[in-house]
Design a protein around this nucleic acid. Structure first.
Lengths: 355, 355
DNA sequence: TTTAGCACTCTCGACACGAGAGTGCTAAAT
DNA sequence: ATTTAGCACTCTCGTGTCGAGAGTGCTAAA
């Protein structure tokens, strides 16, 4: 979906500069930028007339548009896309930012449960927009461990651990009370039998003689299946208020629809699934919904997948108005994806992977 | 903070009726309601002039106000409070709603992790506002079970279960690799020693001879302490978009501040802690921030605590504009609190508590 | 005590008008 | 051939005016 540099030779160097400046200025001020504003604010050594001439070229090329006759120019979706692919895409995050982020994660490396909210918070703060992070998800769940803990009566807490470190809990109500010893025995048997197996392999096992073990086993299977069917685990959001105070969200009703997308988790999962079919790697930038998402008309989403392809991956990204600070957002998203990838690989493989 | 019925005898029966109708109409339409509108919409057997006379009385009593000279009346904070305490407070949720809610929970009773998001979703849907639910939290954490699971290398997953059913996971990096057998042995020892003990009791134990056990034990303690210091566990939100589309949130900047309150979890926890010092029981209604919360100027919050006092309690509530459908919200919140209380008591005590 | 009547006040939408911003075009300058 | 100055043109936006309409408070009659 990205243009190659050589495929867009239709802009002179100066036009490219002007487009860049217009995008930069507009993302800051949210005001259409005119020729005079451009020359004074960026101290250009050109007259406004020259700039106006270039502007008509950029407008005809489809990168700019005028809200009305006597207004300045505003980037179109193509304008943003040009800016993203040609100017900012390969930019790196400044060292200072890299260090502070690494530091924050170093402090939280102990506690896996803090990773996701921390990542969401950092993303939201750095990009000054809304962020989303999904927990890493094992595409092919592998059984690691089960624990059965008796509470009083017939209630039993089942804790199921996957190879990737995912943990799911469930409260069962048995037909009759069972002692902790009995439960532990059953758990031990199942742990021995199912170790490192996938759903299919477990399903293919011969049925257990013991009724209790059999019941638990089927629950384990449904639980693992449910995990696999989800596109990804829980979704962590942060920074919605950042985006709420942007001027384009003050009135426009279709901005409100976009936020609705974020609350309805199923919609969001659908978006993630369809936006990123590919593996870990590049940062995907969805500008204005790309015609596919009506709800994202005025918005942009910067997404990346992290983790280890084929084993456990999750997604993270930033959501904001189309007029977004891509030059800050894209490097941040890429860096965070790399960082989380290395954390996940430490967890799974146990290899020490200082970065 | 509630008025007693006998403390507010300053309203005649008819004035109370009119106040009720005005509140009802205003919560629906968000438009100031005038005398003519009142008589035609509710088919009153009175003239508009009579109603106007009563309105001046209600206005002088502080229950109504006029946005401007030629506008209808709008309830004041005192007006809402009167309505809440005298008209709607003891109202019950209709049977139909009770049944559907019970049904939804019955289907999800198996899976503890679904309770909170489900409760938040139901609250948001029923009240058509934003909802929040905190996980039940054991005020005095009691150790129940620990599980240590080796991943490759020096990484160990620790799963700690409390008596109330809370589970916390943590990823440890040991100084040197340790076998699963060794870990299981240590876990068994700790489980035997710490069973059903509180933080203080565990801290008072003599140090373990074994270095591994000692290390784990101190981690357990910090983890339990962290749980106790939190006002409550994770906070589940839902329905923010409901409240976002309300007219008072379209422009007003201080409505935006209120939403900010919801994102900054620490602020929210502070609010919850200060709003509900007391135990389980009544539903607390905060109207317009009650002078204590600047951020909630135009908003109301309906809160209740649920669970078993002294053992495990959580909070749930609804957040919306001051112009909120209290007559639907308050009974829903009360019912949900009761429902969750009985679920929690099942989990803790294991008693079957059909409701 | 209720109601009809009426003058009064205030909001709100429509309309007009002028200032200002920004443009496109043309012709001169480099 | 490119850049620039100049200028007419168009459009937005804020302001002011105006009239219609809504809703009130008051007074006097029922």
């Amino acid at each position: 979906m990205f243009f190659d540099v050589k495929m867009a030779p239709d802009l002179t160097e100066r036009q490219r500069l002007l487009l860049t400046l217009i995008v930069r200025d507009y993302t800051e001020t949210a005001q259409p930028v005119g020729s005079a504003r451009l020359v004074e604010h960026f101290k250009l050594d050109l007259s406004t007339a020259t700039i106006r001439n270039e502007m008509v070229a950029l407008t005809e090329a489809g990168y700019l548009r005028q809200p009305h006759t006597s207004a300045g120019r505003v980037p179109t979706e193509e304008g943003y896309r040009y800016f993203v692919t040609h100017v900012v895409y390969q930019a790196d995050l400044p060292d200072a930012a890299r260090h502070t982020i690494s530091h924050q994660f170093y402090q939280a490396r102990q506690d896996v449960e803090q990773w996701m909210p921390l990542a969401a918070s950092i993303l939201a703060h750095q990009s000054r927009a809304a962020s989303l992070v999904t927990a890493p998800h094992t595409q092919r769940a592998r059984y690691k461990h089960i624990e059965l803990i008796a509470t009083q009566g017939r209630q039993v807490l089942m804790v199921l651990v996957m190879a990737g470190g995912e943990v799911s809990q469930q409260l069962l109500t048995l037909a009759e009370p069972v002692s902790q010893e009995r439960l532990s025995a059953a758990a031990n048997v199942l742990n021995a039998v199912c170790m490192a197996k996938t759903t299919e392999e477990i399903a293919a096992l011969p049925g257990r003689a013991d009724a209790l073990e059999n019941d638990i086993l089927s629950l384990v299977l449904t639980d693992m299946n449910r995990g696999e069917q989800r596109v990804s685990g829980e979704i962590y959001l942060d920074g919605l208020t950042n985006v709420l105070s942007e001027p384009e969200f003050l009135e426009s009703t279709d901005a409100r629809r976009a936020i609705h997308l974020f609350e309805e988790r199923s919609l969001l999962q659908d978006l993630l699934a369809r936006a990123m079919p590919n593996g870990v790697g590049g940062v995907q930038v969805l500008i204005g919904g790309e015609g596919k998402w009506e709800e994202l008309k005025q918005c942009s989403v910067v997404l990346a997948r992290y983790g280890i392809p084929g084993q456990a991956t999750g997604m993270l990204g930033v959501f904001g108005p189309m007029r977004m600070a891509y030059s800050r957002t894209i490097p941040t998203v890429r860096f965070m994806a790399d960082l989380l990838s290395s954390l996940v690989s430490e967890t799974i493989s146990g290899e020490e992977n200082e970065q």
